[in-house]
Design a protein around this nucleic acid. Structure first.
Lengths: 218, 218
DNA sequence: TAGATTGTTAATCGATTAACAATC
DNA sequence: TAGATTGTTAATCGATTAACAATC
């Protein structure tokens, strides 16, 4: 597997490939071309070939890619061939929703510990996990070998949680709080900034069909 | 306000600027430089100046940007100076979590209608809204002037919901389902694809601290 | 063999960053 | 005036796309 510096954009597309390949595989499809993939995923076929080729030769000229083989390879590349433990902090509506999402399991990612700073939340159960107090974070992360953390606390607490994660040795963070965070070198942070996605949608709306002030309060 | 073709990357940064400017404004800050913004938001100051300058001259040379004025301008650009009504389909854990998020209000976006295909869900209340059956979608979207739709259904139903949205005249979609969707021209789709963000994080993890199979089941 | 499709190089396109004159 | 910071042009960087030889 050749390894130059892989760009972030490429890495972010891999899970998208993986997801659709799983679908294909389940429905019995054996072989798929970059053309097929591109049509389904709204991507340029050349880009898909280039993305995949940056990790090795996974296809067969004149034939295409074997779905099952490609799934296995992408899993390896993403290091999802072994299970990764995830810790989540913040058991509000969103945090609880994520804990109940068990689709991670098939992708070898699993939330194995849940924390909340609010003493009234600790000790309660969410999807077979007991909510732990923040002071147990580091010990638990060490014990369970957790490497990824999810932040679902309010924006003003998010930086603090990121700091705690980093101090506990966590190497990857997915932040749902609407805030830009600082993390030390060696820690990778991704954003699930859906409020920004939603607000930026507004830019593309036509000017005419906007509601006037107050009209919205049905 | 000059208007060439604004790139998507620029538009996506505007809500991030807006959010931090709101914070500054609330804490009494009057003036901010591109330097300050860049440091806080992990962006290059030149990029911030260029982004803003593509919509007009909002700063003062030698001084910086007036926070309150810039907030007003960005709101106008994003068309958030009037309230936008949003419809949500899919009242699972995630959908309910989003409905209870009322932070949209201050940004002039508000969920004004909620739908679910499951008859056992319709008629129930979520944050003062009654869950409606899917056949009422078009009529309600028309009546309330909704232009943006949020999809929080399982992946296999997402395309169908997108089609229904498009048919109902919705112009912007935020899709939380882990699937790439097709929408007709004139409809804009953004993704809140947190499972892909999470899986791509794995790529950056060290190889040594991964759990072995089964070890994760505490 | 003829047709299809990859892997890869070269060309294009677009986005980010540096630099600096203008000016507050 | 001197220092600071914008707006903008030019330079750089990186990502996407086109094209095509290799080959199944």
């Amino acid at each position: 597997m050749k390894q130059e510096k892989i760009s972030d954009a490429v890495v972010r597309r891999l899970p998208v490939y993986l997801r659709y390949l799983n679908e294909l595989s389940l429905s019995g499809v054996q072989t798929v071309s970059s053309q097929d993939l591109g049509e389904k995923l709204n991507l340029n076929p050349a880009q898909i070939r280039k993305d995949l080729a940056s990790f090795g030769e996974f296809g067969r000229k004149g034939v295409g890619y074997n779905a099952a083989y490609l799934i296995e390879k992408i899993r390896q590349i993403l290091k999802l061939d072994k299970t990764l433990g995830v810790a989540l902090v913040g058991t509000g509506n969103l945090g609880r929703a994520l804990c109940n999402y068990n689709m991670y399991t098939k992708d070898n990612m699993k939330i194995v510990a849940v924390f909340d700073a609010d003493a009234s939340k600790t000790g309660t159960q969410i999807n077979h996990l007991t909510v732990q107090p923040m002071h147990e974070l580091k010990e638990t992360v060490d014990r369970l070998g957790v490497t990824i953390g999810i932040i679902t606390v309010p924006a003003w607490e998010a930086q603090n949680v990121a700091d705690r994660f980093a101090a506990a040795g966590i190497k990857g963070i997915l932040n749902f709080a609407p805030a830009v965070l600082k993390v030390p070198p060696g820690v990778r942070i991704h954003y699930a900034d859906f409020t920004a996605e939603l607000l930026s949608l507004a830019y593309y709306m036509d000017d005419d069909n906007r509601l006037s002030e107050g009209e919205v309060n049905v």
